[in-house]
Write a protein that binds this DNA or RNA. Sequence first.
DNA 1: CGCTGGGTTGATGGCGATCAATCAATGTGG
DNA 2: CCACATTGATTGATCGCCATCAACCCAGCG
Lengths: 250, 250
Amino acid sequence: MAIAHPIDPLIDSLSRRDPLSSESVEALRNLTVRVKDFTPNEDLVRSGTSPVESCLVISGFAARAQYLADGGRQLDAVHLVGDFVDLHSMQLQIMDHSVTALGHCTAGFIPHRELISAMHAVPQLTWLFWQTTVTDAAIARTWITCVGRRSAEQNMAHLLCELYVRLSNLGLVDGNAFTLPATQNDLADMLGLSTVHVNRTLRDLRNQDLVDWQAPRVRIPDFDRLAAKAGFDDVYLLPGRPMPPEPPRL
Amino acid sequence: MAIAHPIDPLIDSLSRRDPLSSESVEALRNLTVRVKDFTPNEDLVRSGTSPVESCLVISGFAARAQYLADGGRQLDAVHLVGDFVDLHSMQLQIMDHSVTALGHCTAGFIPHRELISAMHAVPQLTWLFWQTTVTDAAIARTWITCVGRRSAEQNMAHLLCELYVRLSNLGLVDGNAFTLPATQNDLADMLGLSTVHVNRTLRDLRNQDLVDWQAPRVRIPDFDRLAAKAGFDDVYLLPGRPMPPEPPRL
DNA sequence: CGCTGGGTTGATGGCGATCAATCAATGTGG
DNA sequence: CCACATTGATTGATCGCCATCAACCCAGCG
């Protein structure tokens, strides 16, 4: 049995979309991963910098954050185990957002240079890494619609549905429940609401038996009913297309 | 002088980020482009389908749209001349959004198969196409923050700043003014507001001499003042990193 | 001409922000 | 072991931004 390697969560996550070739696995295992632990609200990646590494969630949760001049904060994404939080930093000159730890979080940092060499050598990695950023963007599109056109209740319900499905794909939903180390203030910044209103919205959902939130544990008694309330459709979370026969090269 | 080719807007747009190699230009010119005209509000791409082509704006404007069960609509992005509206459809099984024409619009459709072959042959295209989708995602992140945490006035101002900068990069801003064939209802669906409130917000901006909107023509008398009002920072629109020496292969 | 789509304005109401207080849980130092 | 501080959840009271409803105007057009 293999020793746990910090890249394993990524391998798990990628192979769920497309069976990994042995070259892909080997290339991934040869990557240098600098592992680091983070305390709640600590920054994994800082806005305004020009990273030379990309960051991977190894355990715990992280969230993308944009800050406004008046001190306001908006969270644009939640990152789960095996997610790259800033694969796009390979392509962008300057980070337009920070990434913050939700609860305690372990992250791995991989040099861009090595990621690019790996893709140069193994086209499947190019395809899958690109697909990762594309799926990430699909989630962002959906959040725009949630924040722009859904009620607080629907938005909250939609977020929980998304997390339920994504965590379920990772095998992290157990008996209709999952762990989410986010404060109500964090939720507010994801949904574009005030903390107080998040509290009341959760109370309303609880009173309808749609959600049972105890500390960091979230139970969804009836996913279909919650999804109906949210107007949730999981197409945007479906795995992408398999790599074509003559794949792009980098 | 070269005959106008439907791919030219794309070549212009890409070379603004990274000087195109002659192989890149040739590969692009060899692509098959099916050109089609669209009337306002006509769909270029339909949600729920599985396209075999990607769509490029050749002239005019287009916008990404998500529809809700109750008939509501949210626009997640605006596409300008030379923008791919759904390059990600190469990677995704099913479209999670539609793309609609803002005003009259001409689009070109290019088979995924050919795009992928071109990238297989020319790594620079892989890099630039990927970068296109990454920049697109950066804009989406910013919209989340705008809709979630900015006031109607700031959000409107921010949108106009973004369009001003992007159109300016394309040489489409003339004397502080540009053309935007969008109704107030379209704007409302971009900003997550009601049509009525868009009207009032525009009036407020006009009264502050921040915007002069006449029919499809938008004039920004003082960009810096508008940007200050919006809290606008253009980092997310900066061109990406140049292709590395050993680029990814597809 | 009447119709239609888009812009404009007024009146009213509600969703969610804001301010403020309380409470529970946890942690900390003496 | 206990004062005390801190963080997060909870609830009440009030306010305001923006939605909604309903006119009306205007220009383009069949």
